[in-house]
Design a protein around this nucleic acid. Structure first.
Lengths: 211, 211
DNA sequence: CATTTGTCTGATCGAACGATAAGATTGGTT
DNA sequence: AACCAATCTTATCGTTCGATCAGACAAATG
């Protein structure tokens, strides 16, 4: 049953389903995305989802796994070969990469925001499996910055959600931004300007004046 | 049919339904909140929703209307009697009130975030009916601050979503924050500290150094 | 060529969905 | 007391949901 995917055709279909699932889960929420709509977007029939995945919930988890895996690898790639570089520069790169990834993959914040509103099995899994490592990484970054006097000594809970919110909200809400302001937040210059702003805000702004 | 509510009992029931609808729509999304669940939370039977409201979509609109009405009146109350006060103080009060309202009513950002992910009728209505006035008010505030040199000359689209995201995300995602960090973001001290941080970030941080 | 195994489809299940119709009940009016 | 309109419930409609099953199809293996 649960599909180990040994033949090439199976892998391609699996990928098409994962992409479609991520798209619809992220913009319509778990309940709003029907398995039939996902199947249609993937170009397959609905029962095929249950062949490749054990059920709707497991399909959701597989899609989220895939997305976070992309986030992790892209961040590692960005930070590879920076052994000797100072903490401030690395931190700025991390923040910038988070903003740019959020622009290139608004599904990430959309899914996190969706599930974070309500306690339950999916939130529990999401936090313990994927969010906590990201959070702890961020906290470590905050501490390195604070130790060098480049960041006000504020509780990490505040800084984390400040960073997440400031950096990703406009991309998560891109359709609203488009309609409200007429500006396409995914435009190259917008993303760059927003990343600059967030980096400045987090790292330069709370420096020196505070603490 | 459409219930003009002349007898007192009707108004109380209507309010109970609106409260239940707001709660479930905000945390489960439009599709995830069933009319039966809303009715149960309100302590009435499911068909009664169709007596007081024309349908699920109109119930959603009525609940959102109610919420934004509360936001508007509370903001006006907060800013009443401030005719002579300088722009910077007023702006700080506005930002602080937005953060505190987002803490007291996380449903606001939850519903906005939910609908802003996808273009469609509900987003269109939400933007034109409620979000745009708030946005234009914020833009006017940005311009007054910039004119006094208290804010970097950044495009308002960036500042608006920066403010929204930084100020409301942690409350919107309160269940995640609780599980991830063990901290209750609704605690009085947390809300106050977060408001301070956002006010400082927006108004003091981008001052002088930039531009 | 025959067999097997991985992949996919058509048909259909029971449950939950939003909505409606018909009638019971309640409270104000005369 | 009689009436009537507002409020609410019970029963049920047709649709869509996620899931299952039996079988078709295709590709690798012998």
């Amino acid at each position: 049953m649960s599909a180990v995917a040994s033949r090439p055709a199976g892998l391609e279909t699996r990928r098409a389903i994962l992409d479609a699932a991520l798209e619809l889960f992220s913009e319509r929420s778990f309940d709003g995305a029907s398995t039939r709509a996902i199947a249609e977007l993937a170009g397959v029939t609905q029962p095929l989802l249950n062949y490749h995945f054990a059920g709707k919930e497991e399909l959701w988890r597989a899609a989220v796994d895939d997305l976070f895996e992309r986030y992790r690898t892209s961040m590692e790639l960005r930070l590879s070969g920076l052994r000797g570089v100072d903490d401030v520069t690395v931190a700025k790169l991390m923040v910038r990469h988070f903003v740019e990834f959020s622009a290139a993959n608004p599904q990430l914040q959309r899914i996190i925001a969706q599930e974070s509103k309500r306690a339950g099995g999916r939130l529990e899994w999401l936090v313990e499996t994927h969010v906590r490592p990201v959070y702890e990484n961020a906290v470590a970054m905050f501490e390195r910055l604070a130790a060098r006097g480049e960041l006000a000594r504020v509780a990490p809970e505040h800084l984390y959600y400040l960073l997440i919110g400031a950096g990703a909200t406009v991309f998560m809400m891109a359709p609203e931004c488009q309609r409200l302001t007429g500006v396409d937040p995914f435009a190259r210059e917008f993303v760059a300007a927003h990343a600059d702003l967030v980096v400045d805000l987090l790292i330069r702004a709370t420096t020196k004046e505070s603490a």
